[in-house]
Amino acid sequence: MLTLAWTYLKIGLIFFGGGYVLIPLLQHLLVDQYRWLTLREFLDGVAISQLTPGPLAMLATFTGVRVAGFGGGLVATICIFLPCVVLMLLVGKYYNRLKEIDLIRVTLDGVLPAVVGLVASAAWSLGTTLGSLHEWLLLIAAFCLFRWTSVNPMLMILGSGLIGMLL
């Protein structure tokens, strides 16, 4: 449980660039390094966190529950969000004195290309789970729909679940 807490705390501290960066971070640590869950289970977790309200970062809760039950989910959620909540409380306190906002902005804009690359690498390794031709066709179809229509991701995931049952 301590390893779990420390792992999620570390991720919380290096959690730059919004929710999607969690996909490569968690995948690397939990699937490749600790082997706490399989790539398939991880992908199912991403689907579930897309289906539910709240930030995509709730993926941390799912993986925590998978690793150590309800308590694991609680510890994972608290640890991953603790650093940013504390930071925001400090920002709120010294808000009027923080004049370096431009520097922060430029730094963040500078990190974002790396985040894009890392999220792409997650898609790359998640793609290794796909075997059959119809899975690849489904991927391409989904990509095109997300790219060129404004269809709701939730509906798409539910719909693809139905397709999966029928196939």
Binding site: Y20, D44, V115, T129, E135, L138, A142, R147, I163, M165
Partner: peptide, 23 residues
Amino acid sequence: KKALAGTNPVVIGLICAVVLDMG
């Protein structure tokens, strides 16, 4: 199992679309 297997490629497709959009 089958339902979730159906969502897997779609989730990857979504991540690809996010990558392109963010990029």
